[in-house]
């Protein structure tokens, strides 16, 4: 028996918004520790890894490890039936073919119950090696979304450069080019870009903006985002989900042939 209670539906709603454009179907792997999801997009260029710790949820139980095959679009639609502040319980019996959703209104005067059919998903699980990154940049998640959106109007790819000066995002297209630079030692003034950079080696890498755009759908989960880069390895983009866990995205770099 698996059962997880969230004080508010909004976390689950935001998690689904942050994953459903990348992944159609995914196994939610539930264990005594919590809920984990790992899935690649259909072109195997990017990967999303979600972790929610059971002991940080309103309540959690999972006696036997269970993989729940979920169509992310269907789950998104069911979660839209909940108000943001509804207490939300998700539940599945061992060997069940449905997941049960219970939404309780703040005043506990309305209870809704939905069942969603589960699927058999044959997913490929990848081992992500521990990686020491040359550069890790912490910045405002809103600012990152803005930069990705702005540079997407210029080109399909972004060149990310991190050095001791700061981080620069650059895009080139048929009609022009653009760059956005953030300094690593912002003044203490309010309204400064407020980024921190942990740098051992300068890096310069190219990535497809299309995938970064999908990743920025996680911005409502966290005020901050961290970008971790090393030469010739996938970019890691991480959004913390309060004390409950994280959503991490990996994106393979574009490499000169």
């Amino acid at each position: 028996m698996f059962e997880a209670t969230f004080n508010q539906a909004s976390i689950l709603k935001q998690v689904l918004e942050a994953t459903k454009d990348l992944v159609n179907d995914a196994n939610w792997d539930c264990s005594a520790e919590g809920i984990a999801l790992q899935a690649m997009d259909s072109s195997h260029v990017s990967l999303v890894s979600l972790s929610l710790r059971g002991d940080e949820l309103a309540s959690y139980r999972c006696e036997n490890q269970i993989s729940l095959g979920i169509n992310m679009n269907t789950m998104t639609k069911i979660l839209k039936c909940a108000e943001n502040n509804d207490r939300t319980i998700i539940r599945a019996d061992d060997d069940a073919d449905v997941m049960v959703f219970v939404f309780e209104s703040e005043g506990r005067d309305k209870t809704s119950k939905y069942e969603m059919k589960l699927m058999d998903i044959d997913s490929e699980h990848l081992g992500i090696p521990e990686q020491e990154y040359s550069a890790t940049v912490q910045m405002s998640s809103k600012e990152f979304s803005r930069i990705v959106r702005d540079l997407s109007t210029i080109g399909e790819n972004v060149e990310i450069t991190v050095d001791k000066e700061g981080i620069t995002f650059g895009a080139k297209g048929e009609s022009g080019s653009g760059t956005v630079s953030l300094k690593s030692n912002p003044s203490v003034d309010e309204g400064s870009s407020n980024i921190t950079i942990d740098l051992t080696d300068s890096v310069k890498l190219n990535f497809a903006l299309r995938y970064l755009t999908f990743f920025t759908k996680a911005a409502p989960l966290s005020d901050n985002v961290s970008l971790s880069l090393s030469a010739d390895v996938p970019l890691m983009v991480e959004y913390a989900i309060g004390d409950v866990g994280f959503i991490r995205y990996y994106l393979a770099p574009k490499i000169d042939d």
Binding site: M40, S43, H44, V45, S46, L47, E124, H125, L126, G127, I128, P129, N157, N206, A208, V233, P234, Y250, L251, A252, P253, K254, I255, D256, D257
Partner: peptide, 14 residues
């Protein structure tokens, strides 16, 4: 030009 690599080149199958 620049080629998009697959993630599976970087991460092992678990």
């Amino acid at each position: 030009g620049e080629a998009q690599r697959s993630l599976t080149l970087f991460f092992r199958r678990a």
